[in-house]
Design a protein around this nucleic acid. Sequence first.
DNA 1: TCTGGGGTCCTAGGACCC
DNA 2: TCTGGGGTCCTAGGACCC
Length: 436
Amino acid sequence: MYALIDANNFFVSCERVFRPDLADVPVLVLSNNDGCVVSRSNEVKAAGIPMGAPRFQIETKIKKFGVECFSSNFRLYGDLSDRLMRLIRAESGSNRQEIYSIDECFVWLDEMDEARLSVWARRLRGKISQGLGLPVSIGVAPSKTLAKLASEIIKSDPLNDGTLVLPPGDDERRAGSVREFPVGQVWGIGRATGAKLVEKKIDTAGKFMDMSREWVRANFGLGAAKTWAELHGTACIDQLEAMVSHRQILRSRSFGQAVTEKEQMQAAVSEFVTLAAEACRRMGARANMVTVFIRTSNFAPVNQLYGNSASVSLPMSSSNSGQLMSAAMRALGRVWQPGFAYKKAGVMLSGLEQENAWQPSLWLSAAAMQADERQSGLMKKVDQLNRRYGQRVVGAGWAGMSHHPKSKKIEQKWFSRATNRSPEYSTDWQHLQRVR
DNA sequence: TCTGGGGTCCTAGGACCC
DNA sequence: TCTGGGGTCCTAGGACCC
């Protein structure tokens, strides 16, 4: 049996943990750069503000309903997520948890009777509420897709205790709320497949389940066929699927103001390289390819649209900020075109291999190997310093520096806008909540 | 008149998830 | 004026081999 534990309106709930005065106030959280809505309280949903709406299109509703708007505070959400996952792990045993996203995880359970499963779920939900103040929905079922569906059903029903168990082989129960569930909202059925199904008059999970598996496979591919089997109670999404090591690392941002100078773009790209390289080292990996992409606004007039990317392969894989940086700068040089107003850029590391199992080139000299080891040692020290004394005490290239290496001051136009970011209550001593 | 059978690898694009 | 930031997997088609 699988349990899915899913935090309700996660980012909004994180803000409310430290702002109990907002418990009954409509609250929303905006994406980076204060661009789009990424998390909504139930009141905001009820007010008809859709997920992903750009802020400037909903100004009147924000005023009308008195909506409290937060800029995103990912250090806060990340820290509360860590605490949530640790608490769940402590309650369910190690090796039984699979973290699926920042706000949800699966837990693998032994088969018990329905009543005991239900008690287990309610107890866990209570502990999370008491320990962290976060509301969660818990679905328990014989497949991940059904567990997820159960949590969705129960989340939208305010009159229950936030947990729902779908026991194996219980077709009677599934005949009700599961069968009526809109097919387009089933995990694994997205917009495109959902629309095609509805066109064929298959608009609920039940009608989808009534089709033959062969038909689903032939018309919608392997993914949809797996979803079909999972809905029928056959677990076929691999237990460890989400746990395999990462295949790529991407760091990108939309800019607060458009960037038109190459030096500005270099500063931004070097910041993204630094972030990506840190993430790479944190997961004990090395990369052998660096990709840089830059682009104008998607909403720019056609003759002012431009976007391009370039990749540079490294002679040997690396997690060294300096080496990745010089590769990224070469890639940027290939795609940079003057005369455009750039709104976004990013850096991707791929060809990842594990540090303890990386494949050096056959022609690599002993001296080069030694140099690589020295560089790795240097990076470890840099990471330690930054962890201990704060972000970017030590950096490479232009990362996070307000000055160009040639000491020419450059304005950091590309920094994201964040007009209403909450404090880092749980990760920064300076931001500790004051109790009066 | 007739035009094989069996593979691998890479890439771009689409679809999906949060 | 203003439109996010991460990821994964599958599929089709092209290029190549014998």
